[in-house]
Amino acid sequence: MTKQHLEIKTQDGTAKARLFRPAAPAKAGIILYMDIFGPRLALDQIAERLAGQGYAVLVPDLFYRSVPYGPFDPKTAFADEKTKAALSALSGGTTQDMTIRDGGAFLDALAAEGITGPVGVVGYCMGGARALNAAASYPHRIVAAASFHGGNLASDAADSPHRKAAMIKARVYVGVAGVDRSFPPEQSARLAEALRVAEVDHVIENYVGMGHGWCVEDHSAYDEAGAERHWKRLTTLFAETLG
């Protein structure tokens, strides 16, 4: 496996990204949409594991418009008022529309590296909604989209992903934390209805007992058994859609 550092030109500037490649030619490309704490070792480890299964994995910095920022410790960041405010400003200041625009540049960056076929996307935390919105916005390229402990997937906001369900051609998997204030049961029901009406091939699965962030190793809610279950679902999704 190799790791490349890329600088991706977008409509709004330059986003730094890391591209993880398998030793053999990649089967397909995957874009990993980060959680609120930004690119770091824990996300690199997820990308490396996917690269080990034959995919080229792009991990872009969605907060590139606000550099420099952080770094943040996921275990303590929300306990400190200063870092909590900084994180809220970063996530609030990086709108869904911004990340949707960036998605075209991310896909172009994969193509420039020779990854031109179907693409999968996966997002954690705030990246979950962004992965689903990417699938809706680039249906000609994105054939699989996964969200894990994604927040506000079917909120009242105008940019909520469930409103674009009819545009999604990808297979969708949503892994939900057992108790998650950012994605309560009423939103789960609303998302399920939107995807069903739009005839999107989808699964929404509730991980009972898991907290928001259970998949990511440096998060205070990390759960090893739950994380391995997430890996089984994610790798099956990509194996069946990306080959």
Rank of each mutant, 00 (worst) to 15 (best):
M1C: 11
M1L: 13
Q4W: 03
H5T: 15
E7F: 12
K9T: 15
D12F: 14
D12V: 06
T14D: 04
A17S: 05
F20E: 02
R21E: 14
A24G: 06
A28N: 01
I30F: 04
I31N: 01
I36H: 00
G38H: 03
L41K: 14
L41I: 13
A42Y: 06
L43A: 09
D44V: 09
Q53L: 14
V57I: 11
V59R: 08
P60E: 10
P60C: 12
P60M: 13
Y64I: 11
S66L: 14
V67F: 08
Y69R: 10
Y69P: 10
G70W: 00
P71M: 04
D73M: 08
K75M: 13
T76L: 06
E81Y: 03
T83S: 06
T83K: 02
K84S: 13
A86I: 01
L87H: 05
L87T: 03
S91K: 10
S91L: 14
G92P: 06
G92Y: 07
T95L: 08
D97R: 12
D97I: 10
D97V: 14
M98C: 13
R101P: 07
A105M: 07
D108N: 09
A109C: 05
A111N: 04
E113S: 04
G114K: 00
I115D: 06
P118I: 12
V121G: 04
G123M: 04
G123S: 10
G128N: 11
A129Y: 09
N133C: 12
A134M: 13
A135Y: 00
S137T: 11
A144E: 05
A144S: 03
S147W: 05
G150P: 03
G151I: 10
G151P: 07
N152L: 15
L153Q: 10
A154F: 05
S155I: 06
D156N: 13
A157C: 03
H162S: 01
H162D: 05
A165L: 05
I168F: 09
A170I: 02
R171M: 00
V174Q: 02
G175I: 02
D180E: 05
F183I: 10
F183E: 11
P184D: 07
P185L: 11
E186Q: 12
S188K: 15
S188E: 15
L191S: 00
A192H: 12
V197E: 09
V197Q: 07
A198L: 02
E199N: 15
H202A: 14
H202K: 10
Y207N: 01
V208N: 13
G209N: 05
M210G: 01
M210D: 04
H212N: 09
G213I: 08
W214D: 03
V216H: 11
D218P: 05
A221N: 08
A225F: 02
A225L: 10
G226K: 04
H230S: 15
H230M: 15
R233V: 14
L234H: 09
L234V: 01
T236W: 11
F238A: 00
F238N: 03
F238H: 02
E240M: 11
G243H: 03
